[in-house]
Design a binder for these strands. Structure first.
Lengths: 63, 63
DNA sequence: TCATTATGTAAATAATAGTTTACATTTGGT
DNA sequence: ACCAAATGTAAACTATTATTTACATAATGA
């Protein structure tokens, strides 16, 4: 599974740290999800997608 | 977080067992997610939503 | 160069998701 | 009432996510 977190962050010009604060997880959590090392819960995924104002399916793509 | 799995299952008239097979997890996993005891990974959530042909955000609702 | 901010890596731990098995209860049909 | 299928509950176990801390390495600007 891949994701577009990095691109979405770039659009808004926010750091992993800032995103982490916005969705209320640690920076490491954002980091490992962004790098595809971990898969978030649907709850966290929804919070992230909601923050970026895009559908979950656009932020996380199953290949 | 609540979900509409039961309603979606009802629409298609399929059992927890059948859904479990479709998305390739155990019936217990479906059961505990449906009852809100566990939160699925975004990957499983996407598989379920895809199967029901609805957005993830419609299947899982953060209150 | 120096300081600062952002990102990468790693490792130990806690918390939670998902599996498996087994049995109880409910529901619907005959 | 009986049978079968569906659903509920539970417990032990494994796998994975998320936290925390710490340090290394870019990258950027003063």
């Amino acid at each position: 599974m891949k994701n577009t977190i990095r691109v979405e962050r770039a659009k808004l010009e926010i750091s992993q740290q800032e995103l982490a604060e916005k969705v209320e997880v640690s920076r490491q959590t954002i980091h490992s999800i962004e790098r595809g090392k971990k898969t978030p819960s649907v709850e966290l995924a929804i919070r992230m997608a909601r923050y970026f104002k895009i559908p979950v399916e656009e932020l996380f793509i199953i290949e």
